[in-house]
Nucleic acid binder design. Structure first.
Length: 562
RNA sequence: AGGGGAGUAGUUCAGCUGGUAGAACGCGGGUCUUUGGAACCCGAUGUCGCAGGUUCGAGUCCUGCCUCCCCUGCCA
């Protein structure tokens, strides 16, 4: 689809507005921005905003800025800006030259504040934090005006300069806008513009001891950068009148704000505060734990950036609060991986198979197709020999009628190999099956029967002598209920954690080629799912694979229903 | 309660200036198949939050009501 098509056929209300603004000439070049506060790690919810902002810029031939909203020195760190830069890039977006920091505008913002004071639209307030809260009134009662509200312009100018000079302590004074203490919109009741924070800022160091509040920094930063469409989440709708008020009173370039509903996904938590708690209290291994909804977590889990982009696309953009079914996310991951992932064979629960009529010591190199969906992916050789491992789940001693796999007397196809028939299940003293004695049909090399006999089941296998040992980590949803925050009276959301979100299988076997999978390359274990070498723990001599997502399993449904 | 938003299939979303509802995911069934995957085909479910009104005709316009979400940080 071309950009022109997108403009002609807008996919959501925001793109409709952008298209109209372009058509009417309200804006020339479309300029958007992604404005994270560098105080944590980016997660799936941010991805929606990133895809929206960068996506719109791309579709309309405009540009998207990456701007860090770093107006609160006590919460922000360089470590987070570095990780965010990396994550946005990984997601597939490029801000080009347009990397900015709200802190770059501190001097300009200060000038705007002085201008408002000159116009009698801002004043220095002596009230304490507690008093300001009391004076603000309630949702139903108007607030009261501060005794400082009618100071002279000169006095305000002097006081504000002294605030900047560091003459006052934290919390002693603030600069406020002079708007309307009786406004039904609480945000308009003389909002605080600047507060004193004697803290070292990650970029400006100790150059400042007064810092602008979000409302005073965000809109003006947008205006300075010529942002045409400032897209944010629903909770800022109440702030829009204030956003417009500053632009109007300052007479600066009119950026406009538009709001959309933030992303929610079943079985997932996307709140920074709670994600932090999971990390700090050790419920997960870190911000990049493969079960985390952070971009780093999803990346380590093996989710391709393309799948995240596809998901954000399918989710759409609207103003209704909503919760997306996690199955849509999993579907998007499978859709991308089905097309791109190379197939291999891996046996998670090894069960030894001995082919009694196969020559001892013989090894054959069998041809295996790398990706049936993509002929250009080519093929590879897989070693085959007398002793193999198959997955224990692919054998049943006493199978129900609809079980298509191996069982005593049954014949099954070894993927890319031969048809084999089970002759006997060998048990140990405890009665557990430890080995299968089978015979193979030499005429069926590659898996085809010359006589045309039908074999319903095909299973994966590895040659015992050639297989590589591997640890496999089966990850599942972090929470066991659709809404992790839905807890019974007196309960805690942590109780909704899924105790089975990680199952470690330390003794798996994979085909030799799997020893050379590049980092961050998600592959398919045929019939099982998608896996990626763990970026932290997998090494040439000690393979560790993370399950990204399983394949859909129609047998599971059959088994469950019977 | 004051202000700001939202209510269309199980879920997420489309439905332009009014003409008797669509897609995707999910679900059920089937075809095909050397992944019980993928793909393909078929199918089901909606009192379009409720009630009035305007109109030949309303999810689309008007009025009233109901429900849910957000807002009283010197956070963003």
């Amino acid at each position: 689809m071309t950009a022109a098509d997108d403009i002609r056929e807008p996919r959501d209300f925001i793109r409709t507005i952008v298209a109209e603004d372009v058509a009417t000439g309200r804006v020339g070049e479309v300029v958007t921005r992604f404005p994270p506060e560098p105080n944590g790690y980016l997660q799936l919810g941010h991805a929606k905003s990133i895809c929206l902002n960068f996506g719109i810029a791309r579709e309309f031939g405009g540009r998207c800025h990456l701007r860090f909203d770093d107006t609160n020195p006590v919460k922000e760190e360089d470590e987070f800006v570095d990780s965010m830069l990396e994550d946005v890039r990984w997601l597939g977006f490029d801000w080009g030259e347009h990397l900015y920091f709200a802190s770059d505008y501190f001097e300009k913002l200060y000038g705007f504040a002085v201008e408002l004071i000159h116009k009698g639209l801002a004043y220095v307030d002596d009230l304490s934090g507690e008093e300001i809260r009391q004076y603000r009134g309630t949702l139903t009662e108007p607030g009261r005006e501060s005794p400082s509200r009618n100071r002279s312009v000169e006095e305000n100018l002097d006081l504000f300069a002294r605030m900047r000079a560091g003459e006052f302590g934290n919390g002693e004074k603030v600069l406020r806008a002079r708007i309307d203490m009786a406004s039904p919109n609480v945000n308009m009741r003389d909002p605080v513009l600047y507060r004193i924070l004697k803290a070292t800022h990650h970029r400006t160091g100790d150059a400042w001891c007064i810092y602008p509040m979000y409302d005073f920094a965000h809109g003006q930063s947008d205006s300075i950068e010529g942002i045409t469409h400032s897209i944010c989440t629903l909770e800022f709708e109440d702030h829009r009148p204030l956003y417009d008020w500053f632009i109007d009173k300052l007479g600066i370039w009119p950026s406009r704000q538009f709001e959309f509903a933030r992303l929610n996904v079943t079985y997932m938590l996307l709140s920074k505060r709670r994600l932090r708690q999971l990390v700090e209290e050790g419920y997960v291994g870190g911000w990049d734990d493969p079960r985390m909804s952070t971009l780093r977590g999803l990346r380590r889990r093996g989710v391709p950036a393309e799948a995240i982009r596809l998901f954000c696309d399918r989710v759409g953009v609207a103003k209704t609060n909503s919760v997306i079914d996690i199955q849509l996310f999993e579907h998007c991951i499978r859709e991308v991986l089905n097309r791109t992932a190379t197939r291999y064979m891996g046996v998670l629960k090894p069960l030894r198979v001995v082919l009694e009529n196969y020559p001892e010591g013989q090894v054959e190199e069998l041809e295996a197709v790398n990706n049936p969906e993509d002929p250009s992916a080519g093929s590879r050789k897989v070693p085959f020999s007398r002793e193999l491992y198959i997955d224990a789940d692919d054998f049943m001693e006493d199978p129900p009628k609809k079980f298509f796999r191996l069982a005593p007397g049954r014949e099954v196809r070894l993927r890319w190999g031969y048809l084999i028939t089970c002759r006997e299940a060998v048990k140990n003293a405890a009665g557990e099956i430890v080995e299968l004695r089978c015979t193979y049909d030499p005429a069926t090399r590659g898996g085809n029967a010359p006589d045309g006999r039908k074999v319903k089941g095909t299973i994966q296998w590895v040659s015992a002598a050639h297989a590589l040992p591997a640890e496999v980590r089966l990850y599942d949803r972090l929470f066991q209920v659709p809404n992790p925050l839905d807890v019974p009276e007196g309960g805690n959301w942590l109780e909704n954690l899924n105790p089975q979100s990680l199952e470690v299988l330390p003794r798996c076997f994979v085909e030799p080629a799997l020893g050379n999978v590049p980092a961050e390359t998600t592959v398919q274990f045929e019939r099982v799912g998608y896996f990626v070498p763990d970026s932290a723990d997998s090494q040439p001599g000690r393979l560790v694979f993370n399950r990204t997502v399983g394949l859909r399993d129609s047998w599971a449904k059959i088994a469950a229903s019977s």
